[in-house]
Each structure stands twice: as C-alpha cells, then as structure tokens.
Amino acid sequence: MSGVARAVREKVEPGLRTAWEVTLPDHAEVVKVSPDGTRVAAAAVSGPIEILDAQSGASLARPAGHRMGTTTLAWSPDGRLLVSGGQDGRVRAWDGVTGEPVRELDAGHPWVTAVAWSGDGRMLATAAGRELRVWGTDGDMRAGWTNAASSISDIGWKPGSTILASSGYGGLTLARPGGDKPPRVFEWKGSVLALLWSPDGRFIATGDQDSTVHFWYAQSGRDLQMWGYETKVRDLAWDATSRYLATGGGSEVVVWDCSGKGPKGSTPKMLQTHQSFVSALAYQHAGRLLVSGGFDGLLGLWAPNRTRKALATLEVDGAVSRLAWAPDDHWIAVGSSLGSVARLDVA
C-alpha cells in the first residue's frame, strides 16, 4: 500500500500559484525575504524601498531608499535591520519592521554595488567603486581597503567564516578583515561580474563578462574555466548540498555537477524552457528545487537532479528581475522589470 501511495505522490509535481502581487514605482532591482520569512523587502531601481508583509503583501514600511537609485539590500541575520546601498554613495540601515532610519554609513564612493552581512551578523561589508569596507554592528569601520584593478562587482562571505571574497576585473580577492595576513588574490585577466560561495565553502563560482563561468577551489586558488556560454554570466545558484551549480548566461539554464572529481570535463545539464536569456536563478535553501526566470517573463520550476523538464512554468509581465526562496522553501518572492513584486506559493 505504501508503495502505491509513494508512486502517486511522485507523479504530482509541484505547481506555482500567485498569492499576492504589488507594484513598485520602477523596475524591481532587489527582492529579499527576511530570515524569519515574515517580510519581503524590495527596492525599485529608481530608489524607493518597500517592506511588505509576507502573508498578505501589505506594505509595512517605505524607507526612503537612495536618491539616484537603490542598488542592493541585505537583511541582518537576526532580521531586525534592513541595509540598503545606492548611487548616492551611502549605506543605510533601516529598522526591519518600522522602516525608520537607524544608521548611515559612508561607503567611500558614489556607487554602492553590494552589501553583505557576515553569517554571524557581527560584520557588514560594503563595496562601492574600488572601496571595500567592513563595519561592526556599532557602525564603526573595522577594516577597509581599495581594490587596485577595478571597481568591485560583487562580494561574499565564506559560509560559516569571516573570510570575505570580492570580485572585479582581474579576478578575486580573499581576505579576513582585521586579520594580519595579506589578502589572497586569485588572478584572472577578465571581468568577473558575480561570485557565489558553495554552501560548503569549497568553491567560489564566478560569472564573467566574457561569457564564461569559473570554479575556484577556495583552498588552493586553482580554477576551472567553462567556455561556450551565449552571453555574459550574471546569475549563479548553488544547491544546498554544494553539488550542483546552476548558471545563466544564455536561454538555457546550465547545471554543473561538482560531485566526485568536480565539473572538469563534464557535460552540464541544459534546461530548456526560456525563449530569451535567463535573468534570475535561485535554489531552495534545503530542498532540491531550482527556480529560473527569464527576460521573456517566464518562470521555470525545476528538479535538475532528476529531470530536465520544467515541473511548472508561469509567466509574469515584463522580464523576471529577481527571485528569492522563503526560508521554509514553500514560496518564492519574484520581482519584475515592470516593478511588480509577487509571492508565488509552491504547492
């Protein structure tokens, strides 16, 4: 009997259902779900920020954001603060519920590209132009340095560690802020657009301007370069097990398998449903499902470990700009180029 029940359950694939939808005044540049799953923060490219109730989509607060545009958002791990950066060179911390301004930091350059909390919530890294700064929760700057080669395109803390990686033209820089060791530089003569640590901290994956993906072994600094993408690669997503890396850079979602000897020489899985380039990717926090979004407005839900067919698809108006899974993996927050922000329940 139980065998039959299992077979039936396997045939019922999850679907996507819109729970609510709101509209920002402009292109949804960032969409982030709070760590407790109760709120969704979203920023319009022109600057305004919304904090939304995750159940109803009701607006809880509207932090002013940044003149000239908001570029990045990050929830503190305890969910109490929402930090934003923008094209006014400022990083602002807002109360995560009321939206009241709490603190303002000078990122050192007018264009803030990224902000990232360390896993323990004790440090906030900000990248603006060539300036990388690390701040304590009291708002004091703990460390800061200037990237020699170019503006910093992305930053990321090693999971469970205080090592911070930053990327730009010329490769990656790894450093422990406040430590006495000089930063390690992983050199590559090209422009890195995005970096993402594997959850186990073994790899740093990068997406590059010249239509390549790199796997960097964080321990040795050795790298693998993957050629043949249709366009520049900006979207990367690791699955929870650190086995699969999903990448954009074309109209197909390319999934590399890093088990065993790693992705070197392997043939990736190619997932097809999008009619134009992939624009957003997100893996579940604990589960095996991947969601992809495209410039065509299509959303695809996938279980790449077992099938190359999309489990479900859904279309939004405009292009999909951002995707984020709720902490419980039951729903997805999606942003679009026309400014819509929606909650899609996976059931």
């Binding site: 264009w111 590559w188 422009s191 301007q209 010249d210």
Partner: peptide, 20 residues
Amino acid sequence: EIFEMNNGCICCTVRGDLIR
C-alpha cells in the same frame, strides 16, 4: 575602466564601467 576580454582580441577591449 577599460577591460580586456580574456580572448586576447583588441576588439574586445571594452569600458566595464559603462556596461554597469
């Protein structure tokens, strides 16, 4: 910011800042 693309072709020297 002038970025050379990694294939060593002069035509692939671009302005990284403008792309951003």
